[in-house]
Amino acid sequence: MNIATTQPKVKTGTPPMLIAARIARILVGIVFIFSGLIKLNDPVGTQIKFEEYFEVFAQDVPFLHDFFMGLVPFTLVMSVLFCAAEVILGVALLASYKPKVTVWLLFFLIIFFTFLTFYSAYFNRVTDCGCFGDAIKLKPWTSFGKDVVLTVLILFIMGHRNRLRSRNTGWLVALTIVFTLGLGMYAVQFLPPIDMLPYAVGKSIPDQMKPSEPLRYKYLMEKNGDVTEFDKYPTDPSYKFKEMVLVNEKAKPKITDYRVWNDESDFTQQTFEGEKLFIIIKNTKDIDAGSLPAIRALVEGLKGSAVSPFILTSTSDDEIKAFRKEFQLENVPYYKADATVLKTIMRSNPGTWLLKNGVVRGKWHYNSTPDAAEVKQLVIE
């Protein structure tokens, strides 16, 4: 008599949930590295966003006004550390370096970012969160949605963190720390290695002040409680206008707020004529005074050339006149521009910006002020 014996089935392969956790880990790691690197390329831009948030919080939460305003002087350091943390934690997650600790740190970081984007979207404050710097502009609710998705993915990874093996990849994380902090400090001490702003070298300012193609709109009209969409404004007077929506939004001008003036006239169009070197003085309070002798030498070296130097500032007349006298720049005419525009044009204070017929030919941090020969060469090339 044969006795049949049954063997227990052995499960083979990787459980589907573990595969999903690995995919989530890869996606989260890539997004954090990408986001962090873009912002580390321009940490001053993230600093400006932090300042905006703290100023808004100081207004909206009056009893914590002094606390939030007290954080403003530290926003540049915070910017570098937060941006570096995104890259470091993203690399640590992909490299499976101490995954339990890494996932918890990512969770706290994404909760912080989710709060900021929700505040922006719900209260319509700081409408550009700067999540991906100036490379990718996201609307507030889109930014918030992106952070919610990341939060869900991180929570999913946390639920499977005990299955993630810790690997001996501390050397890679250490190299990432050195690289990210070095990149951040370089961008602060000089200018972003990759300038993604509309005022970058090679960009034409007047061209970017125009739409790239004719703007097209659709018209939402209401009649008897029903809303109808029209490509052209209807001639039927029974329709009531409700809303006009831009169809080709990407065709909008990249620059909409560039304007230069003084007490006598608007100087905007004149900035696009010939060769002009602008000395950007955003304010006179936290300016790097040690860099001004080099700028003064540059101005002196341009005498008799085709390049006309000007000061571009957002400070008051009394302040800029006192500044020009103190640093022997009284022979350099000054014009006004919006403070936000100046922050976008130049990430340092002071800085120099060279235009030729409206096209940016040069842009320098105060730590790398050019000499007159370099400027003259750029305008004849």
Rank of each mutant, 00 (worst) to 15 (best):
Y239I: 09
L172M: 13
Y199N: 02
T228R: 13
F74N: 08
L329N: 05
P206S: 09
A322G: 03
F50Q: 03
P309Y: 09
G202M: 10
H365C: 00
K303V: 11
K100L: 07
T352P: 02
A85V: 01
F34P: 01
Y97G: 04
A20C: 11
D134T: 08
S314V: 01
A339R: 10
A322T: 13
M1Y: 11
K285R: 13
E243Q: 14
D60T: 05
F115H: 03
I23L: 14
N124Q: 14
A95I: 01
R216L: 12
V103T: 13
G36Q: 07
K223P: 00
P193L: 00
Y258Q: 06
F179C: 11
N367Q: 08
V103M: 02
F63W: 15
D266S: 08
N162V: 12
A121N: 08
A297G: 09
F190P: 00
Y258R: 06
S291Y: 06
F278T: 03
G304D: 04
V80L: 09
I345F: 09
D207C: 01
G145A: 12
K254L: 15
P99A: 10
P293M: 07
A121P: 11
V91Q: 07
L155N: 06
S143N: 11
V56S: 15
T102M: 07
G358C: 10
R361K: 15
K218W: 00
N262F: 03
Q47W: 00
L150D: 07
K240H: 12
N162E: 13
R163F: 12
K356T: 12
K210Q: 15
C129S: 13
I295F: 08
P16W: 13
K303G: 10
R22H: 11
K139P: 00
L354C: 04
V359S: 02
A21V: 12
P8N: 11
L64Y: 14
F107G: 08
E243A: 08
E243G: 00
E52N: 13
V80G: 01
F323W: 12
V260F: 01
L93W: 05
D371M: 03
T46G: 08
